[in-house]
Design a binder for these strands. Structure first.
Lengths: 106, 106
DNA sequence: TGGCTATTTGGCATTATAGCCAACCATCTG
DNA sequence: CAGATGGTTGGCTATAATGCCAAATAGCCA
């Protein structure tokens, strides 16, 4: 693999890594509905707020979400709504796999 | 987050985790062109064959690729070509981000 | 200013991932 | 069957990711 390809693959991997966690996928799903502050997401996820904050920071760094401070709260929203397309695609993949597995058991 | 949602997020995360590695993304890209045996992929990636074999095994478990043994070689191919859709999408996201960063520097 | 709330950061322990080597298994060929 | 080739698996070490707590920061309001 040449250096250029390597760099491209690494850049892509950053996005996938950012999405490769249940809580972060949940955040993306929630933000798809509407923006949310950290406290709401923390409540929904049920983890420590520092943990949620770090998840958000990671998603932000990957360019998937953006933040906006209003008062003493920080609101997060989707930056690139096209991520939803592949969340949808992944859902389909999972369904297909479940069906395949069911078919194999017969 | 309720149990059902948690389970769905975890299932999705499996797919993203599988793609969250430069070599595995490279493999997906290569297999998008045509099927490949392990030896070819090993050659292209330039890692130990055991390493490549493990990457392939992970992608297979995630349902992204499938394998077929022919003679003493094993050929891998994409199982769910729709992954390409989001690889394309990710490419776009990266370009957008690069442009944004460039704009910010002005 | 002082206290309160919302969020981020640092630090640390736990766990998961990556990648190499060596050993093993399967298949082909002489 | 022996040897060669292609792949997988086990084991190990190094590195990265996760998640909690505690401490720090920022903005509100009295």
């Amino acid at each position: 693999m040449d250096k250029c390809t390597q760099a491209r693959m690494e850049a892509q991997a950053v996005i996938f890594k950012a999405l490769a966690h249940p809580s972060r996928l949940f955040i993306v799903n929630e933000l798809a509905r509407r923006e949310r502050c950290v406290c709401e997401l923390t409540e929904l996820i049920g983890a420590d707020k520092s943990t949620v904050s770090k998840h958000l920071s990671l998603l932000k760094q990957a360019g998937i979400i953006l933040d906006e401070k209003r008062g003493n709260m920080v609101f997060y929203a989707l930056q690139t709504p096209c991520v939803l397309d592949f969340v949808t695609c992944v859902e389909k993949m999972i369904e297909t796999r479940i069906k395949q597995m069911a078919a194999l058991r017969k």
